[in-house]
């Protein structure tokens, strides 16, 4: 292979048109309609029941509004954030699983790439188009929840609750971005859209169902037969937690719990003596909560970038011919 001479021209040439086309394609597609309906149904159910439960709460709660997101209603056993933990990946996969290979199968890829545009711009435009679509759907859902809370609880959220809610939205979008990058990676690797969808959904199921079991099995395997010291115990617990955190779903739920439950002081393992002096049930200020979830948020964003980079490298090497 010869030395590849330096490319000239911006890698972002043509990014705008690709992004706009992807966005308008997504927003006007039937698939988007189905996904939105899906999300609303899954989101509305826990929120509706949560609101009914919350209306009966008598003790004053300074963070009543945030409870809409986090409380697990007695009748459904599914909180709003748990539902989102489950649905966001599905939406992201639905938006991304055929983004590159469908261009290939429709034979539009070589025609588009023969226009003055680098592959960089095509891939990034597609990713951003999907991410913004996802963000639009999540913001709409968030506003619906906020609005129905306003109507049914009859009191406005406080500024700090809105701020925490916005933080939650950002975490949710980053979480969606990770799964969008996963879906796009598979759409670059596999020429068949069905295979790519199957792999992305398979990975999703793996992280949701199998990974917690595998992680605890590994932890138990590493644990000594008899725990002799506190240090050993802590080490085992931390290993288990570290394994769990390889799943983006864990990062998402930890970050969301940290934001929406202001009482959360740690996302890791804590010994009773470390809790000494803490006032139980006392909420943390917003900045402290943000520091708490910072690693989770950066972890999500970093994995999104890494996955996108891998997709980019694979795409660069791919032959455009059929």
């Amino acid at each position: 292979m010869p030395r590849s001479a330096a490319r000239t021209g911006s890698p972002f040439t043509g990014l705008g048109p690709v992004f706009m086309k992807e966005l308008s394609d997504h927003l006007s597609s039937v698939r988007m309609l189905v996904l939105t309906l899906f999300v609303i149904v899954f989101g509305a159910l826990p929120v509706g029941f949560a609101l009914q439960d919350l209306r009966n709460v008598v003790v004053s709660d300074p963070y009543l509004f945030l409870r809409i997101f986090t409380v697990t209603p007695e009748r459904v056993g599914l909180s709003f954030i748990l539902a989102l933990n489950f649905i966001i990946p599905l939406m992201a996969i639905g938006l991304g699983f055929d983004s590159v290979n469908s261009e290939f199968n429709r034979r539009t890829l070589s025609r588009v790439l023969s226009q003055p545009i680098y592959r960089d711009a095509l891939l990034l435009g597609k990713f951003l188009g999907g991410l913004v679509t996802l963000a639009v759907a999540l913001v709409a859902l968030w506003l619906i929840v906020l609005g129905s809370g306003l109507l049914l609880l009859g009191l406005p959220p406080r500024g700090v609750e809105v701020a925490r809610g916005v933080g939650f939205l950002i975490v949710a979008i980053a979480y969606g971005g990770v799964w969008l990058a996963v879906a796009m990676l598979f759409s670059v690797i596999f020429r068949s859209t069905a295979t790519s969808a199957l792999c992305a959904l398979g990975l999703w199921l793996f992280f949701f169902i199998l990974w917690p079991m595998i992680a605890s099995a590994i932890t138990i395997g590493f644990a000594p037969a008899q725990v002799t010291s506190i240090d050993q115990y802590v080490a085992i617990q931390e290993l288990g937690l570290a394994l769990q955190r390889l799943s983006p779903g864990t990062l998402f739920s930890e970050a969301v719990v940290g934001l929406l439950n202001p009482e959360t002081r740690t996302l890791g393992f804590m010994l009773p003596q470390q809790m000494r002096g803490a006032i139980p049930e006392a909420p943390l200020p917003l900045d402290q909560s943000l520091i708490l979830i910072w690693p989770q948020l950066t972890g999500l964003i970093a994995s999104m970038i890494v996955l996108f980079a891998v997709a980019y490298i694979v795409f660069q090497r791919e032959e455009v011919r059929a």
């Binding site: 490319r7 021209g9 040439t13 025609r111 023969s114 003055p116």
Partner: peptide, 17 residues
Amino acid sequence: VSEPLEVKRRVGYLPDS
């Protein structure tokens, strides 16, 4: 190789099917 955008701006391509 080094100036693909300049080439692609001036060349029209009709791929096979």
